[in-house]
Amino acid sequence: MLQTEVVLTSGLPYDQAADDYLAHHHLAAGNGSLMRAVAGALYGATLPRPRSAEVARAISRLTHADPATGEGCVIFHELIRVALGGGNPIAALPTALAQVQGEERDRWATVLVDDWHPDKATEFNGAVWPALGSAVWALRHTRTFRDAVCVAVDLGGDTDTVAAITGGLAGAVYGLHGIPEAWRVAVHVPLPGARPGERAVWCADDLARLADALAG
């Protein structure tokens, strides 16, 4: 989130800001673009696989210029595509990894193998690799949306982002009705800049309609 904020408030043109951040920071493979990748993945699921990968990289690069972040979003897009089609995203990991470009593939494969555990992470889970690796691990070792998200939160660290990534994957697997009702009714998203008379807050139903529009 910090990297995203710095890039978006840098004052530089959008196509230069992420590059500038990468040039001045050693740690630029943050998980922020993966955190917000669900909307792009819903849209990408309607596209041919190569085009979805292009979209994933392009949207990621708006704030995160490190190539690893874009490739993580490519993997995420493919897992969401498979889940929305009724398939098993865990079984689709080899297909998703095959889309990763060149030198990034081995690094991604390390955190997505069956026996990887978040304790094996070599970076804080604010980095893109352990963030997605932890989300996949949580999905692999649970059987409900609630359990997947709770397990992700219990890992600690960058909990909001890891849980958001996990929730995207688990939501695609278990569907809207797999989310506990008490969680759904609590959702409220304040809309900045709302004018008098306009709706200032969106609820879960509003977000569901937006998701349908993206996927349609």
Results as ranks from 00 to 15, higher is better:
Y21V: 02
H24D: 11
H25Q: 10
H26C: 07
H26Q: 11
L27I: 13
L27F: 10
A29R: 09
A29G: 11
G30A: 13
N31I: 04
N31A: 13
N31H: 01
S33L: 10
S33Q: 01
L34F: 06
L34S: 12
A37Q: 12
V38F: 14
G40K: 06
A41M: 07
L42Y: 13
Y43K: 12
Y43A: 15
G44M: 08
G44C: 07
G44Q: 10
G44P: 02
T46C: 04
L47K: 08
R49T: 15
R51G: 07
R51Q: 15
R51C: 02
E54K: 11
A56E: 10
A56W: 09
A58D: 11
S60V: 11
R61P: 00
R61Q: 10
H64Y: 02
A65Y: 11
P67A: 09
P67W: 00
T69N: 08
E71V: 05
G72H: 03
C73D: 14
V74E: 10
V74H: 01
I75A: 04
F76K: 08
L79M: 07
R81N: 14
R81M: 05
V82L: 11
A83F: 07
L84V: 12
G85Y: 06
G86F: 02
G86S: 12
N88L: 05
P89V: 02
I90V: 15
A91F: 03
A91M: 11
A91D: 08
L93Q: 02
P94W: 01
P94V: 01
P94F: 08
A96E: 09
L97S: 08
A98H: 09
Q99A: 14
Q99G: 10
Q101P: 05
Q101N: 13
Q101K: 15
E103C: 09
E103L: 13
D106M: 04
D106E: 15
R107A: 15
V111D: 05
V113L: 11
D114K: 05
D114E: 15
W116K: 01
W116Q: 08
P118K: 04
P118V: 03
A121D: 13
T122L: 14
F124G: 12
N125I: 01
G126F: 03
A127W: 14
V128G: 06
V128D: 05
W129G: 06
P130R: 11
P130Y: 11
A131H: 04
G133E: 06
S134D: 04
A135M: 05
L139W: 07
H141I: 08
H141Y: 08
T142G: 02
R143M: 11
F145D: 09
F145P: 13
F145L: 09
A148G: 07
A148F: 03
A148D: 03
C150F: 09
V151C: 04
G156M: 05
G157I: 01
T159N: 00
V162C: 03
V162I: 13
A164G: 02
I165R: 00
I165W: 05
